[in-house]
Structure formats: C-alpha cells, structure tokens
C-alpha cells in the first residue's frame, strides 16, 4: 500500500510542480509544453488510481485527459500561437519572485486547510484534495497574473486539471459528468479561440489590457 501511495504522491506532486512551472515560465511555447506535461501527469495519476482501486471507468477519464488535454488542446493552442504570430512573446505581469511567493503561500494555505477539514479521510483522498486545491488556486493566480489571453486560457485549463484530480482523489465523478466536463472544456477552447482571433483582428494584440481600455472608453462616453 505504501508503494501505491508513493506513486500517487509522486504524480500529484509533479502536477503541482507543473503548476509552479506554468507560473514561472514566461515564454508562451514553454507554457504550452508544461501544460501538456501536467495533463499527462494527470492522466497517469488517474490511471494509477484506476489500477489501484480496480475502477476501470477511471481509465476512460485518464484516456480523455491524455488525448484531449495532453495532445489535442496543446496542439491546437500551439497552432493558434503560430497563426497569431506571438510565438516569441514574453508575458509576465508581476515579477517572478512575487508570483512564486504568492504561489507558495497559496499552496501552504491549501494544504493546511484540507488537512484541517479532512482528519478522518483516507490518505489518498486527503492527499488528492490538498494538492488539487493547491493546483486550482495556482491556476486562478495564473489567470490573474497573466496578461496574454493564451496563457490565461492555459491557467483556466490547469484549474480544470486540478478539479479532475480532486474528483479522482475523492470517489471519482460519474462518467457522464466527466464526459460533459471534458466537452465543455473543448467548447470553451473553441470559444476562446474565436474570441482570440477577434481581439487580434480588432486590436492587433492579444494583450487583454487593450480590452480594458475599450471598456474604460465606453464608460466615459
């Protein structure tokens, strides 16, 4: 059993490390690659849970995570970045040190909180929930700190990674919910994509601050 726990801990821990890397990395392509690695880690973690708990439906979740978020979405985003011509962009709002510091603070908060409210639960669950909450908070932080729409999308997707990790750690979502979440993510991607190209057309940049300027101008009118 310890060995089973060790592997789960390793995979979930690597997902958290990926979250930090997403926060740290300011080159867009590297961000996309890190995201793909995180998704693959997620699919491995889910598959491992499926194997340990003998729950075949988790393999489907794992396969979906792998196919959709490990391959399709990163590739799609990659092509989008290519098309938008922002391949070499660098994007960071506050300095990395502060981002890391906030990230560490949020992680600590998540761990303390989950450990405090789940004293009786199984170690898998506590572990999964704690790390998942940390990953979700880090995703939110990334969305707040980033200016570029593509990296914001990645932040959003990594929140979703955290949610799935949490769900697996607990009891596993019903498959229907799982599938619909996956599809909504896909649809979200399409919406984002359309949206992105529209911003781009309009403002010649994917910096979302240009949207704020428009809103400010409207407000004054």
């Amino acid at each position: 059993m310890t060995n089973a726990y060790d592997v789960a801990h390793f995979l979930a821990g690597m997902m958290l490390v990926c979250s930090f890397t997403l926060l740290y990395q300011d080159r867009i392509l590297a961000v996309l690659n890190t995201f793909a690695v995180q998704a693959i880690m997620l699919s491995l973690a889910v598959a491992w849970q499926g194997y340990v708990r003998n729950a075949p439906d988790l393999f489907i979740t794992a396969a979906m995570a792998f196919g959709l978020k490990g391959i399709i979405i990163p590739v799609a985003l990659n092509r989008m970045v290519e098309k938008l011509g922002i391949k070499r962009d660098v994007d960071q709002v506050v300095n990395v040190g502060v981002a890391m510091f906030l990230g560490l603070g949020l992680t600590s908060l998540a761990l303390l909180l989950v450990l405090k409210v789940t004293p009786g639960a199984a170690s898998f669950t506590r572990e999964g929930l704690a790390l998942a909450l940390a990953i979700i908070l880090l995703g939110l932080l990334q969305m707040i700190l980033r200016r570029n729409a593509v990296t914001q999308i990645v932040g959003f997707m990594s929140i979703e990674n955290g949610l799935i990790l949490a769900a697996t750690g607990a009891r596993g979502m019903p498959l229907v919910v799982e599938v619909s979440v996956a599809f909504s993510v896909l649809i979200a991607l399409f919406v984002f994509a359309v949206f992105l190209f529209r911003i781009r057309e309009r403002f010649d940049s994917v910096d979302v601050e240009s949207l704020d300027k428009v809103r400010a101008a409207r407000a004054h009118r």
């Binding site: 726990y5 992680t107 450990l115 704690a130």
Partner: peptide, 12 residues
C-alpha cells in the same frame, strides 16, 4: 515545495 510535499505525505 519539497518541504511542503514531505510535510503533506507525513501528514496524511
């Protein structure tokens, strides 16, 4: 992070 994870795995 290493310390946090060590802390977590001890804790659970």
């Amino acid at each position: 992070l290493a310390i946090l994870l060590e802390f977590l795995s001890r804790e659970v």
